[in-house]
Design a binder for these strands. Structure first.
Lengths: 344, 344
DNA sequence: ATTGCATCATAAATCGGTTTAGTATGAGTA
DNA sequence: TACTCATACTAAACCGATTTATGATGCAAT
């Protein structure tokens, strides 16, 4: 119940002004020529009573919060969870705290979250943006807020971002399937006008065009309810029995896809070969192990936070950087040539 | 670049006092007998200029923030990520925002995070506590802060908490393995004095005692570096070749265990049967599918946030509630009787 | 004795709200 | 007329910090 000590309490106890205490605690003692002796007395008392400045009051006055807002699509998705975790750690080391939120790819919700971040005075925004949020981001930029995007970017907006080479990654994975002898290669992905998704589709289409094969694209609406993903997926696979290989556009849809494939009793890779974007435990442990396009999670997180820290550093020269990292195609049994493909 | 509108701007524009504006915006117009006409004029202007109160200033004065601090062990773990997500949504619907953080089971870090939450004036704390944090939590409670724990609790502290029946769940799973004919049943888990872990071990030991079998417990230190988990695990399995069934204490160690089992070329369940605590995609999609103890994630999250909201409701009578939910043992192929076991 | 200049410290304004304790006005009443 | 009372609104204090502008003191130089 003991009330918290404030800067006034410290000042009163020592019979000095709170101004002096503030200067000392903010390392401006030298500059303000405060005597060594007084500095020591203040520091001693502060330690003794465990005084901590009220950061709300501080933020209110300074307009800084040492908090970075991080908005991901869905924190329960392993890809975003891992990145968030890494960013949190790096931020922490640099004296910043992170507030995360999930956008659910919902524009309205994202808008509200930005507004909440804003009035919490966060110092910077790290966003994997949903569609339709352009105006709000422009407003942020317009009022001088540091913004870094990752995983995707907004076409018409000039911000720092960190992405992977989605088109090439998907081109490469598709080509791999072609080389393994597959001919009816489908891409199943979330329907989305987001840059990363469109690039992945482009890579896929280009690879098939180069191989003179016909694309077969299935787009499914993003939804948190898994049944609403597996049902259309199941219908699609039942209908298109000619498919001999599938590319999945994200880890989430890949996981759902594997469930459906199992329900249908299809054998991988004999009945259908599989490659998924994103690589994590589910794919590694699957039998057979699933080939996957691994994003460089550490590097991604590292670049994101570095860009942000640079933008937050008042001394640094302001520039915008767009970073594209390359992925790794981890080839596993799920997409390797099998006897039937060879026989054909 | 346009400066944000403040309550004073609103007041000046209408030539009234900011007090009046504040009353109107906080729904105290009637109580303060402010005329209908003025109320309308204020509301109109507020909407027009898009005025939003600065919540830092508000929090500074009122001591409330409408933010709940949520501390989980590791946000990149699927169990915690899913719960966090559900809690976030429910909180959001009730006008609260969530700040999450990962404790890494690190007491010192947790201490700092609590302190950060505290000086951000969060209204409540939801914690899956690491060991050694008792004093800090006591202090929170002592100063009247609402605290709800989940997944585990602290022995000597009387707080609301939501957990599952860990001992019974593990007893039940162990018994299942015994009934399937397994005789050398190991439990591999994280070494920890946390309540949930100790209860799981207890359940396991009791079940084996009742079956007159000898327990074989392997405890591994928690670490974010996966190699430091798989290595001792590998060594343990290589040494104890007599094991015919393994229980894993958490999803994370279960995942690592499956990787090691695969590396060693062991067949599930022929060479070794497997049951893991926690149930998620990796286990469902594994071949063969892995039996798992499913925690009721939705119910858990629901109870946690409900307890918290109740504590935050000034009108509610203060009580502490300890809720224990039951789990579901999802039996899959990985732990079913196989020919060899039958033969014995 | 006065001025100039460090040196050490502080009073008061400020950030943007909420809340307490009033005030001004007019109607009703003894 | 003077007193109460309800109505409609407000000045000023406050939350806890930072920052700006301003003393007070002592010593050396004029």
């Amino acid at each position: 119940m003991s009330k918290k000590v404030s800067i006034v309490d410290i000042a009163n106890t020592l019979n000095i002004s709170k101004t002096t205490v503030s200067f000392i605690l903010n390392g401006r003692a030298q500059e303000k020529r405060i005597s060594e002796e007084l500095v020591e007395r203040v520091q001693k008392l502060v330690k003794e009573v465990g005084y901590k400045p009220n950061s709300l009051a501080k933020s209110l006055r300074t307009g800084k919060s040492n908090i970075i807002g991080l908005m991901v699509e869905d924190i329960s998705n392993p890809f975003f969870a891992s990145i968030a975790r890494l960013i949190e750690n790096r931020a922490y080391e640099n004296g910043y705290r992170i507030i995360y939120c999930s956008t659910d790819n919902d524009t309205e919700r994202t808008r509200e979250l930005i507004s909440m971040f804003r009035d919490r005075h966060v110092d910077g925004y790290i966003i994997s943006p949903p569609e339709g949020i352009e105006e709000d981001v422009k407003e942020l930029l317009g009022s001088g807020q540091p913004v870094v995007m990752f995983d995707r970017y907004l076409q018409d907006i000039d911000t720092d971002h960190v992405i992977v080479d989605n088109a090439f990654s998907m081109y490469n994975a598709t080509q791999h399937l072609v080389q393994q002898g597959y001919r009816n290669i489908a891409l199943i992905t979330f329907s989305s006008a987001q840059s990363q998704m469109m690039d992945r589709v482009t890579g896929y289409k280009n690879a098939l065009k180069d191989a003179k094969l016909k694309p077969l694209l299935k787009e499914i609406d993003f939804n948190r309810n898994e049944a609403l993903i597996t049902e259309p997926l199941m219908a699609f696979l039942k209908k298109n029995t000619g498919i001999d290989a599938i590319l999945f556009g994200t880890d989430h849809i890949g996981t759902c896809g594997l469930k459906v494939i199992r329900q249908l009793g299809l054998k991988v890779p004999e009945d259908v070969a599989v490659v998924s974007f994103d690589d994590y435990d589910v794919f590694k442990l699957h039998s057979p192990p699933v080939s996957a396009i691994a994003q460089p999670i550490e590097a991604l997180a590292d670049h994101v936070i570095s860009l942000m820290l640079k933008k937050l550093d008042a001394n640094a020269t302001p520039t915008t950087q767009k970073i594209t990292l390359s992925t790794n195609l981890n080839i596993r049994e799920s997409s390797l040539q099998h006897s039937k493909a060879v026989a054909e």
